[in-house]
Amino acid sequence: MTDSTPADPSSCIFCDIVAGVLPCAKVAEDETTLAFMDIDPGSDGHLLVIPKRHSADLLAIPAEDLTATVLAAQRIAKVIPAQLGADGVNLLNCTGAAAWQTVFHFHVHLIPRYRDRTRDRMELPFEPGSVVDLGMLAQQASLISAGLRG
């Protein structure tokens, strides 16, 4: 957790939405999760799926809340192409301010994608297909694997 990450759910805008203190355009809700439209959408139909229980980010969320949130996102994603005419869907999570996280309550963005650029304002922040150093990839894989082994 970083200094910009509130540990206290009482200062969390998403917890206020869950509690009904702040309004939202609700898409779906169950005992564990809530899905609602993003107020700063990158494309038509861009929405957020959150666990109702507060966790700051991907590093802090309990496995059962993560599972429920991702399964809820998948259930919603399955209807987006037919309901909105989307050509695809992105599932995005940002963990930490350096990764563009602005609300420190775990959430996933469910972003419908369209070939029609008038409905889709998002662009990748990097250029896929660039040249990669295979030695660097192997070194990074080794470091991460070592961390997983403890």
Rank of each mutant, 00 (worst) to 15 (best):
H46E: 13
D16M: 06
E123F: 05
V27W: 13
S130C: 03
G135Y: 12
T2Q: 15
L143Y: 13
V89T: 14
V103N: 07
P112H: 12
S145V: 02
L34F: 05
L143T: 11
G129Y: 09
I76L: 15
G147F: 01
D16H: 12
E127Y: 00
G42K: 14
V79H: 10
L66D: 02
A138E: 06
V131P: 05
T32P: 04
Q139M: 11
D30Q: 08
D38Q: 04
L124M: 12
C24G: 03
L71P: 00
M122G: 07
G85R: 14
G96P: 01
R121S: 12
D8I: 10
L124E: 04
S55H: 05
G147K: 12
S4V: 15
V131T: 11
Q74V: 13
T118I: 00
C12Y: 00
F36T: 00
A19H: 05
A72I: 00
P112D: 08
M122L: 11
T33K: 10
S10E: 06
P128Y: 02
G147P: 13
D16E: 06
P23R: 01
A82G: 07
L134N: 08
C15R: 00
D8S: 09
L137D: 04
R121V: 07
C94I: 00
C24H: 12
S43D: 13
D30C: 11
Y114M: 05
I144C: 04
D116W: 01
G45E: 07
A28T: 07
T2K: 10
M122S: 07
T118P: 06
V27M: 12
V27F: 13
G88E: 11
I17T: 01
G147L: 04
Q140S: 10
N90Y: 09
K52H: 05
A141S: 11
L124G: 11
E64I: 13
H46D: 14
V103G: 05
I76V: 08
E64D: 14
L59S: 10
F14P: 00
D87Q: 14
T32Y: 12
H109R: 08
L66G: 14
H109F: 05
G129D: 11
A60R: 09
G150M: 04
K78P: 10
R121G: 14
F106I: 03
L84Y: 06
P81F: 06
